[in-house]
Design a protein around this nucleic acid. Structure first.
Lengths: 106, 106
DNA sequence: GCTTATAATAAGCCATGACTTATGAAACTC
DNA sequence: GAGTTTCATAAGTCATGGCTTATTATAAGC
């Protein structure tokens, strides 16, 4: 699986996005997340694994706990992907503008 | 299913992203897409349906054909979602800066 | 040291999703 | 108008994904 696909797939699940958004507000442990969410602890751990493999999240041991938090640059590739189309759309728009200009000249 | 989920889910499939990227370059018909891609015509139609429901793509009849193209504002919600975290991350950074400033003052 | 808390992994279940072939329905081409 | 092209939908198959309960490993606390 491509890294890009991993990224989009990680964000495609609503539970996983909810976890990500919680972590964006504040880093926290697995148990804290699982207490706040309507799924079991193993489910949370599995989601965190997927998020981590997509480099959206990182973890750090803290005693028996493990604090998960947002990986700061994690959304960078998503932004880059998005910007590609921003550019392309601009280019497409520009060529239409040019076409009109040419028509009015000629 | 939430609209946001539909959007991410639509982009999570690599074949579907490939279709989207082709259409970003140039609007084209189903048959044209299916000739260029390694899946059957029905598969293409099914993918286009998903992309359309995510408002990433629109279509227009042209005789027996049907020309699909990018929906211009389709990526807007994705950008907005992304910007939310951009802001949040900035805010988190700012509070750290403030903390350091307070420490140096006190 | 024994118990308790925390989190990861294993195994199994069920729904969904991506694909296929087959078919039907419009619209053009001659 | 018969044949052809184009596209959507139906139906079926197979793999994957998200969840559960059960279990194990590691660290804390008394």
């Amino acid at each position: 699986m491509t890294y890009e696909t991993r990224l989009f797939a990680a964000l495609a699940d609503p539970t996983r996005r909810a976890i990500f958004e919680r972590l964006a507000a504040r880093g926290q442990s697995v148990s804290e997340l699982s207490r706040a969410m309507p799924v079991s602890q193993p489910a949370i751990s599995q989601h965190l694994k997927v998020l981590k493999e997509a480099r959206l999240v990182r973890d750090e041991p803290a005693g028996a706990r493990r604090i998960y938090s947002i990986d700061p640059g994690g959304l960078g590739p998503l932004r880059q992907w998005l910007d590609r189309f921003w550019i392309e759309q601009l280019a497409a728009f520009q060529s239409k503008v040019d076409a009109v200009a040419d028509r009015e000249e000629g």
